[in-house]
Amino acid sequence: AEDTGVRVELNEEDDGKKTSIALKLWVEDPKKLKGKYKDTGAIEFTFDLVHEVPEVVAQEMVESGFFLDCDVKIVGKSIRDRVALIKWRRERTASPNG
């Protein structure tokens, strides 16, 4: 995935079944953000892989004061990339070759 300066990782082991999964997000490179970033630490949250949209969660982070509005896209993309990877891994596990 593209290096957005915002890192998103699983915050629990993925059992491949739960739709809602714990994620952890933190800023690795504040210079990649357009707005001034307050170093708040890592943000832990749960994300519903089926029903939720990464950009909506990014917007909620902006409204909660973690990021400025100008960075909503970069945060949303970072979450989207991680979610895509989780889904890809699940699909690969669910449909073994053979």
Binding site: E44, V57, S64
Partner: peptide, 27 residues
Amino acid sequence: SPTAQVVHSAGRRFIVSPVPEARLKEQ
């Protein structure tokens, strides 16, 4: 531990915790 909790008006819970040093990008 220094954690804080922020609840968004939509009901989502964000928990702020320290970034593990080992996971910070190495320069």
